[in-house]
Design a binder for these strands. Structure first.
Lengths: 155, 155
DNA sequence: AAACAACATTTGTATATACAAATATATAAT
DNA sequence: ATTATATATTTGTATATACAAATGTTGTTT
Protein backbone atom coordinates (compact mmCIF):
# COMPACT_ATOMS: atom_id res chain seq x y z
CA UNK A 1 0.00 0.00 0.00
CA UNK A 2 1.56 3.29 -1.07
CA UNK A 3 1.56 6.43 1.00
CA UNK A 4 -1.17 8.12 -1.04
CA UNK A 5 -3.60 5.37 -0.14
CA UNK A 6 -3.20 6.36 3.49
CA UNK A 7 -3.40 10.09 3.05
CA UNK A 8 -6.45 9.82 0.80
CA UNK A 9 -6.70 13.38 -0.38
CA UNK A 10 -8.21 14.28 -3.73
CA UNK A 11 -5.62 16.86 -4.72
CA UNK A 12 -2.27 15.56 -5.90
CA UNK A 13 0.51 15.84 -3.31
CA UNK A 14 3.80 17.36 -4.50
CA UNK A 15 6.58 14.79 -4.50
CA UNK A 16 8.71 16.75 -1.98
CA UNK A 17 5.87 16.89 0.53
CA UNK A 18 5.03 13.29 -0.15
CA UNK A 19 8.60 12.20 0.55
CA UNK A 20 8.62 13.86 3.97
CA UNK A 21 5.24 12.44 4.92
CA UNK A 22 6.34 9.05 3.65
CA UNK A 23 9.52 9.16 5.73
CA UNK A 24 7.68 10.06 8.92
CA UNK A 25 4.98 7.50 8.25
CA UNK A 26 7.44 4.72 7.47
CA UNK A 27 9.37 5.57 10.62
CA UNK A 28 6.22 5.08 12.68
CA UNK A 29 5.49 1.83 10.90
CA UNK A 30 8.97 0.46 11.58
CA UNK A 31 8.96 1.62 15.19
CA UNK A 32 5.70 -0.19 15.87
CA UNK A 33 7.26 -3.43 14.63
CA UNK A 34 10.56 -2.95 16.42
CA UNK A 35 8.89 -2.14 19.73
CA UNK A 36 6.71 -5.20 19.41
CA UNK A 37 9.86 -7.27 18.91
CA UNK A 38 11.82 -5.71 21.77
CA UNK A 39 8.94 -5.71 24.24
CA UNK A 40 9.53 -9.42 24.84
CA UNK A 41 12.99 -8.56 26.09
CA UNK A 42 11.91 -5.67 28.29
CA UNK A 43 14.03 -3.05 26.59
CA UNK A 44 13.31 0.04 24.50
CA UNK A 45 14.88 0.73 21.13
CA UNK A 46 16.78 3.67 22.59
CA UNK A 47 18.21 1.55 25.39
CA UNK A 48 19.11 -1.10 22.84
CA UNK A 49 20.89 1.50 20.72
CA UNK A 50 22.97 2.64 23.68
CA UNK A 51 24.01 -0.95 24.28
CA UNK A 52 24.95 -1.34 20.61
CA UNK A 53 27.07 1.80 20.75
CA UNK A 54 28.82 0.63 23.90
CA UNK A 55 29.43 -2.77 22.37
CA UNK A 56 31.05 -1.07 19.38
CA UNK A 57 33.59 0.42 21.78
CA UNK A 58 35.25 -2.99 22.19
CA UNK A 59 35.70 -2.74 25.94
CA UNK A 60 36.66 0.92 25.97
CA UNK A 61 34.24 3.11 27.93
CA UNK A 62 32.25 5.87 26.19
CA UNK A 63 31.51 9.33 27.50
CA UNK A 64 27.89 10.34 27.74
CA UNK A 65 28.38 12.96 25.04
CA UNK A 66 29.86 10.35 22.72
CA UNK A 67 26.76 8.22 23.10
CA UNK A 68 24.55 11.24 22.63
CA UNK A 69 26.26 12.33 19.39
CA UNK A 70 25.48 9.00 17.79
CA UNK A 71 21.82 9.06 18.70
CA UNK A 72 18.90 11.35 18.04
CA UNK A 73 17.95 11.91 21.65
CA UNK A 74 18.73 14.83 23.95
CA UNK A 75 21.54 14.86 26.48
CA UNK A 76 19.25 14.90 29.50
CA UNK A 77 17.41 11.83 28.32
CA UNK A 78 20.60 10.00 27.48
CA UNK A 79 21.43 10.31 31.19
CA UNK A 80 18.15 8.63 32.01
CA UNK A 81 18.60 5.94 29.37
CA UNK A 82 21.88 5.02 31.04
CA UNK A 83 20.11 5.10 34.43
CA UNK A 84 17.75 2.42 33.16
CA UNK A 85 20.60 0.31 31.80
CA UNK A 86 22.43 0.54 35.12
CA UNK A 87 19.27 -0.54 36.95
CA UNK A 88 19.16 -3.59 34.69
CA UNK A 89 22.84 -4.31 35.33
CA UNK A 90 23.76 -3.90 31.67
CA UNK A 91 26.15 -0.92 32.11
CA UNK A 92 28.25 0.87 34.69
CA UNK A 93 28.93 4.57 35.09
CA UNK A 94 32.07 6.01 36.67
CA UNK A 95 33.48 9.52 36.84
CA UNK A 96 36.28 10.03 34.34
CA UNK A 97 39.58 10.33 36.32
CA UNK A 98 41.27 12.66 33.82
CA UNK A 99 38.29 15.02 33.64
CA UNK A 100 35.90 14.84 36.52
CA UNK A 101 33.14 16.57 34.56
CA UNK A 102 32.96 13.63 32.24
CA UNK A 103 31.50 10.24 32.89
CA UNK A 104 32.54 6.85 31.55
CA UNK A 105 29.90 4.35 30.54
CA UNK A 106 30.87 0.73 30.05
CA UNK A 107 28.88 -2.32 29.07
CA UNK A 108 28.94 -5.12 31.63
CA UNK A 109 29.26 -8.88 31.12
CA UNK A 110 25.53 -9.15 31.68
CA UNK A 111 24.93 -6.42 29.11
CA UNK A 112 27.10 -8.22 26.57
CA UNK A 113 25.29 -11.49 27.18
CA UNK A 114 21.96 -9.74 26.73
CA UNK A 115 23.13 -8.21 23.45
CA UNK A 116 24.30 -11.61 22.23
CA UNK A 117 20.77 -12.88 22.66
CA UNK A 118 18.86 -9.90 21.29
CA UNK A 119 21.15 -8.77 18.46
CA UNK A 120 20.50 -11.84 16.28
CA UNK A 121 16.78 -11.33 16.77
CA UNK A 122 17.11 -7.75 15.65
CA UNK A 123 19.32 -8.78 12.74
CA UNK A 124 16.67 -11.21 11.53
CA UNK A 125 14.08 -8.54 11.99
CA UNK A 126 16.05 -6.01 9.98
CA UNK A 127 16.61 -8.51 7.19
CA UNK A 128 12.94 -9.40 7.14
CA UNK A 129 11.72 -5.83 7.17
CA UNK A 130 13.91 -4.90 4.21
CA UNK A 131 13.36 -8.14 2.28
CA UNK A 132 11.29 -6.44 -0.42
CA UNK A 133 14.29 -4.40 -1.52
CA UNK A 134 17.53 -5.57 -3.09
CA UNK A 135 20.92 -4.61 -1.66
CA UNK A 136 21.35 -2.24 -4.59
CA UNK A 137 18.03 -0.58 -3.77
CA UNK A 138 19.08 -0.19 -0.16
CA UNK A 139 22.45 1.26 -1.15
CA UNK A 140 20.57 3.83 -3.18
CA UNK A 141 18.13 4.48 -0.33
CA UNK A 142 21.06 5.10 2.00
CA UNK A 143 22.56 7.54 -0.49
CA UNK A 144 19.28 9.44 -0.74
CA UNK A 145 18.95 9.69 3.02
CA UNK A 146 22.54 10.82 3.45
CA UNK A 147 22.01 13.47 0.77
CA UNK A 148 18.83 14.64 2.43
CA UNK A 149 20.66 15.34 5.67
CA UNK A 150 23.67 16.79 3.91
CA UNK A 151 22.65 20.44 4.02
CA UNK A 152 23.77 23.67 5.53
CA UNK A 153 20.39 24.15 7.01
CA UNK A 154 20.24 27.58 8.61
CA UNK A 155 16.76 28.57 9.63
CA UNK B 1 27.83 13.51 6.45
CA UNK B 2 26.82 9.93 5.80
CA UNK B 3 25.29 7.65 8.40
CA UNK B 4 28.49 5.67 8.95
CA UNK B 5 30.26 8.81 10.11
CA UNK B 6 27.79 9.02 12.96
CA UNK B 7 27.80 5.41 13.96
CA UNK B 8 31.58 5.22 13.90
CA UNK B 9 32.07 1.54 14.32
CA UNK B 10 35.09 -0.29 12.97
CA UNK B 11 33.24 -3.31 11.62
CA UNK B 12 31.33 -2.82 8.40
CA UNK B 13 27.57 -2.50 8.84
CA UNK B 14 25.38 -4.67 6.59
CA UNK B 15 23.39 -2.56 4.17
CA UNK B 16 20.02 -3.78 5.51
CA UNK B 17 20.89 -2.81 9.05
CA UNK B 18 22.36 0.45 7.84
CA UNK B 19 19.17 1.34 5.98
CA UNK B 20 17.04 0.91 9.10
CA UNK B 21 19.42 2.91 11.27
CA UNK B 22 19.60 5.56 8.57
CA UNK B 23 15.82 5.82 8.39
CA UNK B 24 15.41 6.20 12.12
CA UNK B 25 18.27 8.67 12.30
CA UNK B 26 16.99 10.76 9.40
CA UNK B 27 13.56 10.81 10.97
CA UNK B 28 15.00 12.28 14.15
CA UNK B 29 16.96 14.80 12.13
CA UNK B 30 13.88 15.94 10.23
CA UNK B 31 11.72 16.06 13.35
CA UNK B 32 14.18 18.32 15.11
CA UNK B 33 13.95 20.78 12.23
CA UNK B 34 10.19 20.58 11.88
CA UNK B 35 9.59 21.09 15.58
CA UNK B 36 11.88 24.10 15.55
CA UNK B 37 9.80 25.53 12.72
CA UNK B 38 6.40 24.79 14.29
CA UNK B 39 7.37 25.91 17.79
CA UNK B 40 6.92 29.53 16.67
CA UNK B 41 3.28 28.75 15.95
CA UNK B 42 2.62 26.88 19.17
CA UNK B 43 1.58 23.63 17.55
CA UNK B 44 3.03 20.13 17.42
CA UNK B 45 3.58 18.20 14.20
CA UNK B 46 0.89 15.73 15.21
CA UNK B 47 -1.65 18.46 15.83
CA UNK B 48 -0.67 20.01 12.51
CA UNK B 49 -1.18 16.67 10.77
CA UNK B 50 -4.68 16.35 12.22
CA UNK B 51 -5.50 19.81 10.88
CA UNK B 52 -4.14 18.85 7.46
CA UNK B 53 -6.29 15.72 7.42
CA UNK B 54 -9.39 17.67 8.42
CA UNK B 55 -8.66 20.28 5.78
CA UNK B 56 -8.46 17.52 3.18
CA UNK B 57 -12.06 16.66 4.06
CA UNK B 58 -13.30 19.82 2.28
CA UNK B 59 -15.80 20.75 4.92
CA UNK B 60 -16.99 17.22 5.64
CA UNK B 61 -16.35 16.08 9.23
CA UNK B 62 -14.05 13.15 9.97
CA UNK B 63 -14.53 10.42 12.52
CA UNK B 64 -11.81 9.94 15.07
CA UNK B 65 -10.96 6.55 13.63
CA UNK B 66 -10.57 8.07 10.17
CA UNK B 67 -8.04 10.53 11.50
CA UNK B 68 -6.27 7.79 13.40
CA UNK B 69 -5.95 5.53 10.35
CA UNK B 70 -4.07 8.19 8.46
CA UNK B 71 -1.61 8.83 11.24
CA UNK B 72 0.93 6.79 13.14
CA UNK B 73 -0.38 7.55 16.60
CA UNK B 74 -2.64 5.49 18.86
CA UNK B 75 -6.37 5.99 19.21
CA UNK B 76 -6.20 7.21 22.80
CA UNK B 77 -3.71 9.89 21.91
CA UNK B 78 -5.66 10.99 18.87
CA UNK B 79 -8.47 11.84 21.29
CA UNK B 80 -6.07 14.04 23.22
CA UNK B 81 -4.67 15.64 20.07
CA UNK B 82 -8.19 16.69 19.18
CA UNK B 83 -8.67 17.95 22.76
CA UNK B 84 -5.75 20.28 22.23
CA UNK B 85 -7.07 21.50 18.90
CA UNK B 86 -10.49 22.19 20.44
CA UNK B 87 -8.81 24.15 23.25
CA UNK B 88 -7.13 26.26 20.60
CA UNK B 89 -10.41 26.75 18.76
CA UNK B 90 -9.16 25.04 15.61
CA UNK B 91 -11.66 22.15 15.60
CA UNK B 92 -15.04 21.09 16.97
CA UNK B 93 -16.22 17.66 18.11
CA UNK B 94 -19.84 16.51 18.00
CA UNK B 95 -21.43 13.14 18.53
CA UNK B 96 -22.38 11.50 15.24
CA UNK B 97 -26.21 11.52 14.96
CA UNK B 98 -26.45 8.32 12.92
CA UNK B 99 -24.17 6.36 15.25
CA UNK B 100 -23.80 7.78 18.71
CA UNK B 101 -20.62 5.81 19.35
CA UNK B 102 -18.83 7.79 16.72
CA UNK B 103 -17.67 11.35 16.88
CA UNK B 104 -17.38 13.96 14.17
CA UNK B 105 -14.40 16.27 14.07
CA UNK B 106 -14.54 19.39 11.93
CA UNK B 107 -12.03 22.14 11.30
CA UNK B 108 -13.25 25.62 12.26
CA UNK B 109 -12.84 28.91 10.43
CA UNK B 110 -10.06 29.77 12.88
CA UNK B 111 -8.40 26.43 12.20
CA UNK B 112 -8.57 27.03 8.46
CA UNK B 113 -7.08 30.49 8.85
CA UNK B 114 -4.30 29.07 10.97
CA UNK B 115 -3.55 26.42 8.34
CA UNK B 116 -3.46 29.10 5.64
CA UNK B 117 -0.68 30.81 7.52
CA UNK B 118 1.33 27.78 8.56
CA UNK B 119 0.95 25.53 5.52
CA UNK B 120 3.04 27.77 3.21
CA UNK B 121 5.75 27.87 5.85
CA UNK B 122 5.76 24.09 6.01
CA UNK B 123 5.71 23.87 2.21
CA UNK B 124 8.80 26.05 2.00
CA UNK B 125 10.37 23.98 4.70
CA UNK B 126 9.64 20.72 2.91
CA UNK B 127 11.04 22.09 -0.34
CA UNK B 128 14.15 23.32 1.40
CA UNK B 129 14.75 20.10 3.31
CA UNK B 130 14.56 18.04 0.11
CA UNK B 131 16.43 20.49 -2.09
CA UNK B 132 19.49 18.24 -2.40
CA UNK B 133 17.45 15.64 -4.26
CA UNK B 134 15.81 15.87 -7.66
CA UNK B 135 12.14 15.07 -8.19
CA UNK B 136 13.20 11.82 -9.87
CA UNK B 137 15.28 10.90 -6.82
CA UNK B 138 12.33 11.61 -4.56
CA UNK B 139 9.98 9.57 -6.74
CA UNK B 140 12.39 6.70 -6.35
CA UNK B 141 12.70 7.28 -2.61
CA UNK B 142 8.91 7.15 -2.29
CA UNK B 143 8.84 3.89 -4.23
CA UNK B 144 11.46 2.38 -1.94
CA UNK B 145 9.58 3.41 1.19
CA UNK B 146 6.27 2.12 -0.15
CA UNK B 147 7.94 -1.19 -1.00
CA UNK B 148 9.47 -1.40 2.44
CA UNK B 149 6.06 -1.18 4.08
CA UNK B 150 4.44 -3.44 1.54
CA UNK B 151 4.82 -6.73 3.37
CA UNK B 152 2.74 -9.41 4.92
CA UNK B 153 4.60 -8.97 8.12
CA UNK B 154 3.46 -11.65 10.52
CA UNK B 155 5.58 -11.81 13.60
C1' DA C 1 -36.54 -8.49 25.24
C1' DA C 2 -32.46 -9.97 27.91
C1' DA C 3 -27.89 -11.22 27.54
C1' DC C 4 -23.77 -11.06 25.11
C1' DA C 5 -20.39 -9.67 21.82
C1' DA C 6 -18.54 -6.01 18.86
C1' DC C 7 -17.46 -1.29 18.03
C1' DA C 8 -15.87 3.67 18.81
C1' DT C 9 -14.05 6.47 21.86
C1' DT C 10 -12.30 8.02 26.35
C1' DT C 11 -9.87 7.74 30.82
C1' DG C 12 -6.12 6.26 33.90
C1' DT C 13 -1.51 5.66 34.35
C1' DA C 14 3.29 4.55 33.53
C1' DT C 15 7.02 5.64 30.64
C1' DA C 16 9.44 8.66 27.28
C1' DT C 17 10.89 12.96 25.55
C1' DA C 18 11.76 18.12 25.23
C1' DC C 19 13.25 22.26 27.25
C1' DA C 20 15.17 25.10 30.78
C1' DA C 21 17.74 25.59 34.76
C1' DA C 22 21.06 23.82 38.12
C1' DT C 23 25.39 21.61 39.45
C1' DA C 24 30.09 20.59 39.23
C1' DT C 25 34.51 20.88 37.11
C1' DA C 26 38.00 22.77 34.04
C1' DT C 27 40.01 26.56 31.40
C1' DA C 28 40.92 31.44 30.46
C1' DA C 29 41.32 36.30 31.68
C1' DT C 30 42.39 40.05 34.81
C1' DA D 1 44.77 33.91 43.07
C1' DT D 2 40.09 35.46 41.95
C1' DT D 3 36.65 35.95 38.78
C1' DA D 4 34.56 34.82 34.63
C1' DT D 5 33.59 31.66 30.93
C1' DA D 6 33.14 27.19 28.87
C1' DT D 7 32.27 22.30 29.24
C1' DA D 8 29.88 17.91 30.75
C1' DT D 9 26.31 16.13 32.96
C1' DT D 10 22.20 16.02 35.89
C1' DT D 11 17.70 17.53 37.76
C1' DG D 12 13.03 19.51 37.50
C1' DT D 13 9.07 19.74 35.03
C1' DA D 14 5.71 20.00 31.34
C1' DT D 15 4.17 17.60 27.43
C1' DA D 16 3.72 13.41 24.56
C1' DT D 17 3.07 8.62 23.87
C1' DA D 18 2.00 3.61 24.87
C1' DC D 19 -0.80 0.26 26.98
C1' DA D 20 -4.67 -1.45 29.52
C1' DA D 21 -9.06 -0.87 31.27
C1' DA D 22 -13.49 1.57 31.36
C1' DT D 23 -17.56 3.71 29.19
C1' DG D 24 -21.32 4.05 26.25
C1' DT D 25 -23.59 2.45 22.02
C1' DT D 26 -24.97 -0.78 18.47
C1' DG D 27 -25.69 -5.33 16.57
C1' DT D 28 -26.53 -10.28 17.33
C1' DT D 29 -28.01 -14.41 19.58
C1' DT D 30 -31.09 -17.08 22.37
Amino acid sequence: MNIESFIKTENKIPVRKKAIINLLFTHGWIMDKINLELKNHDISIQQFNVLRILNGQKGKPANLSTIQERMVTKMSNTTRLVDKLIQKGYTTRTICPSNRRKVEITITQKGTEFLNIVSPIMDDFENKITSNLTEEDLDQLNIFLDQLRNQNFNS
